[in-house]
């Protein structure tokens, strides 16, 4: 949604048409985004013309919009579809980029992820070829997880893009 607010002119109907979701769901999402300070809802009395925006991104919204652009670009380069649609996929890839390679290291780096969730995501990313799994002998035998060779440049770029926003 963050990416579609401006191309839709900040108006409800074009936004709904671009997103192809129900009015009730869009309304609910917009309300929640406004509550979180990402959007400002302009009242009918604040709008000088009916064709002007009903919603505008706040400074925080613009920042997250840029982050969403970076994510979208990385997903395009990775070629595995919308990885961000599932929780933890992208943080996990970023953790591997920052050389957290062992399960417990990754888990610690991600903070709130459950072992089961992390295990599931690692399996899925390995299955599609984004992540390689191997055994490291030292200091003690353990599985390690690494970004696949082809995944490294897009994830490196994503990390750089997100860092530049901070």
């Amino acid at each position: 949604m963050l990416l579609e607010v401006e191309p839709s002119g900040g108006r409800f109907t074009p936004l709904q048409n671009r997103l192809q979701i129900t009015p009730a769901r869009l309304s609910d999402n917009l309300k929640r985004m406004a509550e979180h300070g990402l959007l400002r809802h302009l009242s009918p009395l604040e709008r000088r013309h009916p064709a002007l925006p009903e919603y505008v991104l706040t400074e925080k919204g613009l920042l997250l919009r840029d982050a969403a652009k970076a994510v979208q670009s990385a997903e395009g380069m990775l070629g595995y579809g919308r990885l961000s649609a599932k929780a933890w996929n992208l943080p996990l890839l970023l953790a591997l980029h920052y050389e957290h390679t062992r399960f417990q290291d990754i888990r610690f780096a991600l903070g709130q992820v459950t072992p089961r969730m992390l295990s599931g995501r690692l399996d899925e990313l390995q299955l599609i070829g984004a992540v390689d799994k191997s055994i490291a002998e030292l200091p003690r035998p353990a599985y390690i997880y690494l970004l696949h060779q082809d995944s490294k440049p897009p994830v490196r770029r994503l990390a750089a893009d997100l860092s530049s926003l901070l």
């Binding site: 108006r11 409800f12 009242s43 009918p44 009916p50 009903e54």
Partner: peptide, 10 residues
């Protein structure tokens, strides 16, 4: 006369 759909109409 022009019309523009809006979520909220007064």
């Amino acid at each position: 006369i022009g019309f523009s759909e809006a979520e909220e109409v007064v």
